[in-house]
Write a protein that binds this DNA or RNA. Structure first.
Lengths: 317, 317
DNA sequence: TTGAAAGCGCTAACAC
DNA sequence: GTGTTAGCGCTTTCAA
């Protein structure tokens, strides 16, 4: 009898015991989908994730997973290999009628053509690491992170600070760039055009090691003078930068300081000073917000910005 | 009417047209779980993955994802943070009655206490990057990979070849170690105890950059002589090794050759010669095998071993 | 408190 | 060909 399994209070101790006993003997398990159908609830959420964001993605997913399983829900994963062509298809799949109670949408531009779709059908959704005014979102404050990093460099006494950035079409790259400039401005430092390189590499929007390596090469080839510190828009690029530097015999941090962004696992290995995004926690919060949204579809969209924190290691003494 | 949506041939052109028309107008979608319940099929598989295997895991997952979505199935993901305590719990969840048609079990020791469970209930399962005689499995031939790498070093003319390995309790580390020794033996090379280091670091069984770094330090501290080439049991460790070497002013490959294993993304960045595991393809094949198993539960377990291939880059001239 | 029956939304078998 | 109905396995309502 369904009543006892579902903890209905109106059952006598005796029947409860008996039912439980039989259930155990028969190794009974309710059928997943019969239950979901009858209850009109999916007990599942889906996650749409671009597959290229490696480090970030895994950490956030851990957070998501841990929270979600604590709540007894299932995670249906849709990994998007080519966002520009596949997002809409996966949105469709993940929102097939009844399938999930909510969706987590990661790191991709949310297609404008689907905002009505979600709103009309009242499908709870939270955007992670991306933004849209009509939906809940969890992001990291790239501007403040870059500001923090730059301020740190300034407080260390650096005057000439360079920047190596990923493609500025990319929203996070742009925000980090702006934070960098603002920090310079607020502290009376000059922005040196000759110490500014935007990578040409477009793979992952320039957020890759080779991009950092080559951008640094370019900086080195411009002339003899170098800044005393460089802010790099991501750790993975920073590692490329350090590589390029060390090839020329330039020591980090003795000859030049380097600061990154993200705090990926390798950053620790390299002793890289950087700005840490609380990835795991973002995953947890994303799930929490999604559940709140599921329970109250009327509240207006909330945007949570995580403040990154400085992680001081060895590359900026 | 269900007939036309499901492509039943016994429908007149006209009704088909009409039904389709109405369905479109009403924006009709069959209810996911009603369908699954009636069909007694889950149209979903689950994947049990340990969360720490980073690079490998993402690549394989891509393959899984791409094949699975080609087949129109859903992927229910269970990320295991602490295999030693959580596997059984997630096995239970992922095999809840009716939930999935099959399961993919990754890179963890399959608990002996659950082999009967799967066999009796006839749940299709394929093990990926791990092995059990009673179930289908997809693995990489670590022995042959290491053999290949070592043979390559030998053919390059190296006499004194060192090895830096992860914890030998770990099955892949051991297999790679054995492949290394066998290659030495087969080609009349000596195994030098003084050029052999097993890492002490136990994080990820020693498959991490710092482990490589420190193991190499240890090798360097032993005395003046060095081998002319080193086989390292993983790329991530090899990067640590190169780091330690370059700190001492020892150039790779001028002073010493280094070869890794895995072909992670960083390997390309570092120009590291290595042995490539076809991770994406393993994911694809895993899904294919799982489907074959789902269609025929009687065939006896098959074990597929992928042969890794040498990727020659710049660290072994 | 408990037994019975009416959904949940679909598929498949059965008549017509 | 097409309409009808009996499941699929559970939850929930309604009597009893």
């Amino acid at each position: 009898m369904s009543r006892v399994l579902n903890g209905n209070p109106h059952v006598s101790e005796e029947t409860r015991r008996k039912v439980l006993e039989v259930a155990r003997r028969l190794n009974y398990q309710p059928h997943t989908y019969a239950q979901r159908l009858a209850k009109q609830k999916a007990y599942a959420i889906s996650a749409l994730i671009p597959f290229f964001i490696n480090y970030f993605f895994i950490e956030v997913l851990r957070g998501v997973q841990s929270k979600i399983s604590e709540l007894g829900f299932d995670l249906v994963l849709y990994g998007v290999n080519d966002p520009s062509t596949q997002v809409e298809h996966y949105i469709q799949k993940s929102t097939h009628r009844g399938k999930v109670d909510g969706v987590l949408f990661f790191s991709m531009k949310f297609p404008e053509s689907y905002v009505r779709y979600f709103i009309q059908r009242g499908i709870p959704i939270v955007l992670v690491d991306t933004y849209h005014p009509k939906f809940d979102s969890i992001t990291v404050d790239n501007f403040r992170g870059a500001y923090l990093a730059t301020k740190h460099l300034i407080e260390l006494g650096h005057e000439k600070i360079g920047i190596i950035t990923a493609r500025l079409e990319s929203v996070p790259a742009k925000q980090r760039f702006d934070g960098f400039k603002q920090a310079l401005l607020d502290h009376g430092r000059k922005f040196y055009d000759e110490f500014f390189v935007e990578t040409k590499d477009t793979r992952h929007d320039g957020f890759n090691r080779e991009a950092g390596y080559h951008a640094c090469k370019e900086l080195l080839n411009r002339g003899a003078k170098l800044p005393s510190a460089i802010f790099v828009s991501s750790d993975i690029q920073a590692i490329g930068v350090i590589e390029a530097l060390s090839e020329k015999g330039i020591k980090v941090p003795d000859d030049i300081s380097v600061i990154g962004f993200d705090d990926i696992e390798l950053a620790k290995d390299f002793g890289l000073t950087t700005v840490r995004q609380p990835m795991y926690e973002m995953g947890v919060v994303a799930v929490e917000k999604l559940f709140e949204r599921m329970n109250d579809k009327k509240i207006s969209p909330r945007h949570i910005k995580f403040i990154p924190e400085l992680v001081i290691r060895k590359t900026c003494p």
